[in-house]
Write a protein that binds this DNA or RNA. Structure first.
Lengths: 192, 192
DNA sequence: CGCGACGTTGATTTGCCTCAACGATTGTGG
DNA sequence: CCACAATCGTTGAGGCAAATCAACGTCGCG
């Protein structure tokens, strides 16, 4: 169960067997069916979840009540409302499974213990933050400077796995276009 | 010179006089006139800059060579290409002063020393990352779910200082609209 | 002074949205 | 195991928000 997450953290920091064992002892395993809410707007996010397997979306609702996808998470990604988690503040975000998923959860108290006892883990989480930041930055640029069709093509190249597993209208939402328009883009591309 | 930055870090972590002094000894002060490049695409970002005073933009170029503003920085903000800085990878980003500015620079070697010697600083930088992440997240949501006019009004409320100091066409770029259209929005708003 | 950077305004175009109707597939309770 | 409802994707018609293009005014500054 811990194989994947240990492989992940070892890519970020040099850790011995004992340190890994301590880390693993803090994690809470959880299996959830698809369409399960891990977080709803109005509550406080008390976990950072490592996805062992499965597929998860996080999103906000706009004024019409339509989902705006913030991130997709699949195997070997973390998902959380980072702000709400760290500041124990009310979240505006929904986090919901798209597939049956197996997670390893870290709660705030455990994370603090972990960082106190093994400061090397700071780097693991800093890299996680940086990765998110880089991906958000690309999206901001894309939404401003790139046409809907090119955003879609870039997405296909960058996340081939996700594009096969996630319903098309969610991808449209992630890319900032209507589901109908994405469908038309695909039709146009298929004709060539 | 160190007054502002020390106030800033004390908000994030509990530090004594010696720790602050050591921190300050690692910083490099730099004064630069406006329209100075601190970073150009193609090079590696070797600083995280705390802005003592002044105003700075970071941006990417789209395929037409037009600036797409990523962030504005003013007093008490950090500015850097975080990815390039930490991974010592080639940046795609430009960082350029808008006003004469006074900076305190931290280079990668110094930052590592600092974190090694005083791990409490981890939190300072983690909060910096989180703040950036939260602001990027809002922008992604805004660009997808909010009209140009409302994005502008939100910007005015959230960054009143910046909106008074930065040329209008840069704000338009930040908000993801053409300068002409922002001008029309302002004309429309003024009529009421 | 004259030039470049900046903002405005109007005419025209367009990329994308909205709405609506319609299959196809999946899932589910009776 | 079927019937019916969701869920999902497609297609077309029409509309609108914002982009583009172009011309012009204004300031600050070398």
């Amino acid at each position: 169960m811990f194989e994947e997450i240990n492989k992940y953290v070892l890519k970020c920091a040099d850790l011995n067997v004992d340190e890994l064992a301590y880390f693993n002892s803090l994690l809470i395993s959880k299996k959830v069916p698809k369409k399960t809410f891990l977080l709803k707007a109005g509550s406080i996010c008390d976990f950072e979840a490592f996805i062992v397997h499965g597929c998860i979306k996080s999103y906000l609702l706009d004024q019409n009540g339509t989902e705006v996808i913030l991130t997709f998470g699949i195997e070997n990604w973390w998902i959380s409302d980072i702000t709400s988690f760290h500041e124990q503040s009310m979240s505006q975000m929904y986090i919901e499974t798209i597939e049956d998923s197996e997670l390893l959860l870290l709660n705030p108290a455990s994370k603090n213990q972990l960082l106190e006892k093994i400061p090397k883990f700071e780097k693991v989480f800093r890299l996680m933050l940086q990765r998110h930041l880089a991906s958000y930055q690309e999206r901001i640029f894309g939404n401003i400077a790139i046409s809907a069709q090119d955003r879609y093509l870039t997405f296909l190249k960058k996340y081939p796995t996700i594009s096969q597993r996630v319903p098309q209208h969610l991808i449209a939402s992630y890319l900032g276009m209507s589901p109908e328009f994405l469908s038309k883009i695909r039709a146009r591309l298929a004709k060539k």
